[in-house]
Design a protein around this nucleic acid. Structure first.
Lengths: 196, 196
DNA sequence: GTGACTGATGTCAGCCACAGACATCACCTT
DNA sequence: AAGGTGATGTCTGTGGCTGACATCAGTCAC
């Protein structure tokens, strides 16, 4: 007989999302989440540093996908070309099958300020990482941070669109469009699309 | 005899910044802050919705300055010209006398993840407001959000530079430079400076 | 002028997020 | 077989935060 069911963390995450979606974030206690999968509150906090984190744990992989996209760009690429490549890497991390899950998750986050704060914080971490990667490519400041921040902005807008009800395009189709919009905005030459 | 000393909120804010700066944010309890100015914990939480808020209350004025800058731009201004105007409005909200205060405040914030989260959240609120103002000017999405987000990014970088030890330029001198960097980055024509 | 009203505060009691310390016990190593 | 390991439970405590109610100086109504 096994002493513990495996996958405690994943079970906690799934139960938490479900409870948050039905009852709401603040109306759900950490103890309830834990009990719903046969664990104790103390164990919940051993897996997640705080209650919100149960919805964000594992984002490192996404961050990694973004950073991998940076590395995938050719060495002589311009900052914006690097960003385009990073967006491509990030988008491939969200295949269309994941859309329903992302939707409910985002709905929960959007309804709670505390969760939005955490989301922004994670996104800021992504900016830091990407800016670091850009600097490692020889891009100076403030260009590196500006580019990274712009990339995060574009991703955020594209993701929000991907989530939207009725949207059928995949994220990797949406992201380049948004990037192009940014270029139009800042008055770049509007010739043929540079980042298809 | 007066029943209460006036300016409870301001006294709490001042005491909180001082205690956070010396002892650290987490090592300071809300009750301690309150007692240090002759009030109770309960009163602290009547003035500030949570412990972090004591450092952020009043930012509405800053947000207003930013939004006013948007409104100050001529009706036919391009999104970027509007952003330049908004940056000007925001910068004038931070005269050089305020630099030391801003420095210590930012030092406290930078040292605590929870405070950074709240800061990002406030900044996101600014983006929302500015995007709204841009949409009211007839600018569509995603251009409005992209422009607003870019403006916030530029402001953030400029502010960080303004705070930096040894920096002597005023914020309204730094911000246009950073904006110009963004334009260079996105490949805009590099003629004479468009936003002096 | 007196009495009701208001608004900032105090008091009390309680929930919940979170953390330290220690015990437990299937499984693994040797 | 003996001891180590790691995920968990139990116990206990602190601090953030809230609802309900009391207080009381100043203000307003009459």
């Amino acid at each position: 007989m096994v002493r513990w069911e495996p996958g405690a963390r994943e079970r906690l995450q799934a139960a938490a999302l479900e409870l948050f979606a039905t009852r709401g974030f603040e109306q759900t206690t950490a103890a309830e989440i834990a009990q719903s999968v046969g664990l104790t509150e103390r164990t919940f906090f051993r897996h997640f540093s705080d209650k919100r984190e149960v919805l964000f744990y594992g984002q490192d992989q996404f961050l990694q996908a973004f950073a991998d996209g940076v590395d995938a760009a050719p060495p002589d690429a311009s900052p914006l070309e690097v960003i385009a490549s990073a967006l491509h890497g990030a988008a491939s991390f969200f295949p269309d099958e994941r859309r329903p899950y992302s939707r409910t998750r985002q709905a929960v986050i959007d309804q709670n300020p505390a969760l939005r704060e955490r989301e922004l914080h994670k996104l800021a971490g992504l900016v830091t990482t990407v800016a670091e990667a850009l600097r490692a490519r020889g891009i100076g400041e403030p260009a590196a941070t500006l580019a990274a921040e712009s990339g995060a902005t574009v991703f955020g807008i594209a993701f929000a669109q991907w989530i939207r009800e009725g949207e059928t395009r995949s994220l990797s189709d949406i992201a380049p469009d948004v990037l192009q919009e940014l270029l139009n905005l800042t008055g770049a030459a509007t010739g043929s699309r540079k980042f298809p």
